[in-house]
Design a protein around this nucleic acid. Structure first.
Length: 481
DNA sequence: TAGCTCGTTGGACAA
DNA sequence: TTTGTCCAACGAGCT
């Protein structure tokens, strides 16, 4: 007898290959009905922002095309998710739903509710860990507690068996009658006023775009990864984060592509570069591990005493930071790159984050919110981890006196100022020697470059020495609690 | 259990 | 110009 149809609920796993939920569902031999449900209100205050929605629209389009090539379809429905899943089950007589886990607290709770109600109705629920290398619940210290420090977490992960080989895209059997679907455009994920031209230049959402990034990573980026990944003026990073976030490629696929490359290369140097990249994938695991075990950290500091931090409320200054008009060139370059492309280089992320939190004393939660709305790779686990790290209240045992100096950081990681010139065109004619501190630049050089501070480019909005001392004092006030 | 070691990404200052 | 040393909190995680 032929198996009953199964639903495969696509979420942040918008791919056919190495998709455990899809793979196992297809192995039953019965018809498989791929479903996507748009239910942003169920993600609480962290529903996708405008830039994420733009990406999602194109990624869903790409998934839908891939399914059509295989004589299947993507059934698109509006939430609530429980109802959106219910009606195709009723329409087709499906007896099971398959999905891959997500780890955001609101989604975890929602999924648990849905799983429980489906089970009560005798619909089978089968869930998988398709977007992480390790089930976060399965990694713990010897005392059985979740890790809070990366190095021991990494050590434990490294002692595990290598992730298994990626699964190939399965053959899909179609149902006799497809359930109703709405057109992708009816989700209204694209902005009404099209500001996405630069985004389209910078990114190709979808599986094909993800695969191209992996090719570039292997062919070019990896050869000097550990040095160049810190250089915003070089194309030295993988740029895989949005593709990984939407699950257009799985970490396991990336892991295998990189580790095979490392093994095949004859040079010890290249194999080291491969290891450096794989370590970054484990950072991604660590961020998810932390959010899974400490779900309050999306909104509250992991370190409790930081709740008493004397943050400053200053919407005017916050706005200057958001617009890239702080007067610190590398900060402004980063913030403008973000607004233009939906992405910011990791090193620059740390610089702008440190600037907001330490120099301006504005809370990391303001930062998290702004980045959430503007990033193509907005990911609750990675964002939460990153901002808490920058705020000094997260899983990092850094000394409290670690405060980034944007000038030194700029000189170190953008030594010729090419990155600044790309994003802050008003400084394009300032020589590299001066570009990271225009306020110190001799008047004659400024004049030659056609820059008058305060008119063409802002004066610094904060005095560095004052800011550093104020931040240290604020951090020290916590230790007295 | 108690003690020990160590911690992704830094900066200021001296030599 | 570069390199080394200090800062000196504090808690996770291991032995």
């Amino acid at each position: 007898m032929k198996s009953a149809p199964s639903l495969v609920w696509f979420r942040q796993d918008l791919r056919l290959a190495d998709n455990p939920a899809l793979h196992v569902a297809s192995q039953r031999g019965g018809p498989v009905i791929p479903v996507f449900v748009w239910a942003p209100e169920e993600e609480g205050q962290w529903s996708p922002g405008a830039v994420s929605r733009w990406w999602l629209h194109h990624s869903l389009g790409s998934l839908s095309d891939e399914l059509r090539k295989r004589k299947s379809r993507l059934v698109i429905r509006m939430g609530p998710a429980s109802e959106a899943l219910r009606s195709p089950i009723d329409a087709t007589g499906a007896d099971a739903v398959y999905w891959n886990h997500r780890y955001e607290p609101a989604v975890v709770r929602r999924d648990a509710r849905i799983a429980s109600s489906l089970t009560k109705e005798n619909v089978g629920v089968h869930t998988f860990h398709g977007s992480l290398l390790f089930d976060p619940a399965s990694v713990s210290t010897r005392e059985g507690k979740p890790y809070q420090v990366f190095t021991p977490f990494h050590r434990t992960c490294s002692q595990r068996d290598e992730p298994g080989p990626p699964l190939s895209a399965p053959k899909l059997c179609s149902p006799e009658r497809w359930p109703d679907s709405i057109p992708l455009d009816d989700l209204h994920l694209l902005p009404e006023i099209d500001w996405t031209a630069r985004m389209r230049d910078a990114w190709e959402p979808g599986v094909a775009g993800a695969e191209k990034r992996v090719d570039i990573l292997l062919e070019k980026v990896l050869t000097n990864y550990s040095e160049d990944r810190d250089r915003p003026d070089h194309p030295g990073t993988s740029r895989l984060s949005p593709h990984l976030h939407f699950g257009e490629i799985s970490p396991r696929q990336v892991w295998h592509a990189i580790s095979e490359y490392g093994e095949q290369s004859q040079s010890a140097g290249l194999s080291q570069q491969a290891d450096a990249y794989l370590r970054q994938l484990v950072w991604r695991e660590f961020a998810h591990h932390l959010l899974f075990h400490f779900p309050h950290t999306a909104n509250q500091p992991l370190r409790e005493k930081h709740a008493a931090f004397p943050w400053v409320k200053d919407t005017k200054v916050l706005r200057e930071w958001q617009r890239g008009r702080t007067g610190d060139p590398i900060v402004d370059a980063g913030m403008r790159e973000l607004r233009t492309t939906g992405w910011m280089h990791n090193r620059v992320c740390m610089i702008v984050a440190s600037f907001l939190v330490k120099d301006l004393l504005i809370s990391w939660t303001e930062e998290a919110r702004w980045f959430w709305d503007t990033l193509v790779d907005a990911d609750l686990a990675n964002n939460t981890f990153g901002w808490q790290w920058a705020g000094g209240c997260g899983a990092d045992a850094a000394p409290y006196f670690r405060i980034f100096n944007p000038v030194i950081q700029g000189e170190k990681f953008d030594p010729n100022g090419d990155y600044v010139r790309r994003w802050v065109p008003e400084l394009v004619n300032i020589p590299g020697q001066w570009i990271h501190q225009p306020w110190e630049t001799p008047e004659a050089i400024l004049e030659q470059a056609g820059v008058r501070l305060g008119r063409d480019y802002p004066q610094p909005i904060v005095d560095r020495v004052f800011a550093r001392e104020r931040a240290l004092a604020a951090l020290q006030s916590l230790t007295r609690h």
